[in-house]
């Protein structure tokens, strides 16, 4: 698939000059994933642009979350998973034998569906990543904690209770703590697996606003069930169905004029 190329050429003709500047951050070539003998992802290829938001949509079980987890090798944790094909991040194949998964995951952070702060204080949650990287100097940690919380737009809400348990916060706040915790290890790519699916509309709006701010510095890939959310937050959208990548394009194109019938059926609510 050479959609990105197609898009770049096409966008040159349009007024949107920004997309010409987009560099490919992640390049996936012919990726297939098996659970045992069961083929869960079928020969997927795509390019993901740097400092843009890319949304993965599709019905439950279509493989979008599984695919997301191939990008930081989270599927390594599951027994019986076999992966074929390449995932290149900054032109380096992350499935190469001499790739250190630990380094990869520092570069490719992840936010989960269910907010999962540790049963520690807000401060210790944010300091977790820096600490495991050997940063123990208090002034340095203080700085990282504050900067990360500010970037996650939650500093004002928690600055007076940094040493309270993160579990005492609301669900939406906990999810932003998790985002701040990821930012504290200074990733380049942030994977978000339905980050707002368990949140109320106001908290969801805050997360979406945050995604918008974060994309100036990070490449963001978000899996979502919510098509309005994909439309609101993303620059590119990929539609998955039964382990296939059906279509990927600029978000406005996918939602206004999809190329494939299946995509149109899904976004118009005919199934899924």
């Amino acid at each position: 698939m050479r959609l990105q190329l197609y898009l770049d050429i096409k966008s040159e003709k349009t007024e949107n000059k920004n997309t010409i500047m987009n560099d490919t951050k992640v390049e996936v070539n012919n990726l297939s994933l098996y659970y045992g003998t069961n083929l869960a992802l079928k020969n997927i290829s795509m390019n993901i642009s740097e400092k843009q938001v890319t949304a993965f949509i599709g019905p439950s079980g279509c493989g979008k979350s599984t695919f997301l987890r191939t990008l930081n090798r989270m599927n390594d944790l599951i027994d019986n998973v076999t992966i074929k094909g390449d995932v290149l991040i900054d032109n380096i194949n992350i499935y190469d034998k001499n790739i250190d998964v630990v380094d990869l995951r520092k570069k490719v952070g992840m936010i989960f569906q269910k907010s999962n702060p540790f049963a520690k204080s807000v401060y210790e949650n944010i300091a977790f990543g820096p600490r495991i990287n050997g940063i123990n100097q208090k002034s340095k940690l203080d700085e990282i904690v504050e900067v990360s919380l500010r970037q996650a737009a939650i500093w004002d809400e928690v600055k007076d209770r940094l040493f309270n348990s993160a579990l005492s916060l609301s669900g939406g706040q906990q999810q932003r703590i998790c985002i701040a915790r990821t930012l504290a290890v200074n990733p380049e790519i942030i994977l978000m697996d339905e980050p707002a699916s368990a949140l109320d509309p106001i908290s969801t709006a805050k997360i979406e606003e945050l995604i918008h701010e974060l994309k100036t510095r990070y490449t963001i890939i978000i899996v979502t069930h919510n098509m309005q959310q994909a439309a609101r937050t993303s620059d590119y959208t990929a539609f998955f169905y039964m382990g296939n990548l059906v279509e990927m394009n600029k978000t406005e194109k996918i939602f206004s004029n999809p190329a494939k019938r299946q995509t149109e059926d899904y976004i118009s609510g005919r199934f899924g």
Binding site: M74, L77, R105, K106, M110, F112, N116, G129
Partner: peptide, 27 residues
């Protein structure tokens, strides 16, 4: 200890041993 807790730690670039030491055993 929920799987999400281990995943949170691993996704931050913690090694398995760091995850056990800092998340699993304290829990």
């Amino acid at each position: 200890i929920p799987r999400e807790m281990r995943e949170a730690s691993l996704a931050l670039g913690a090694t398995k041993w760091q995850t056990i030491k800092k998340v699993v055993l304290p829990g």
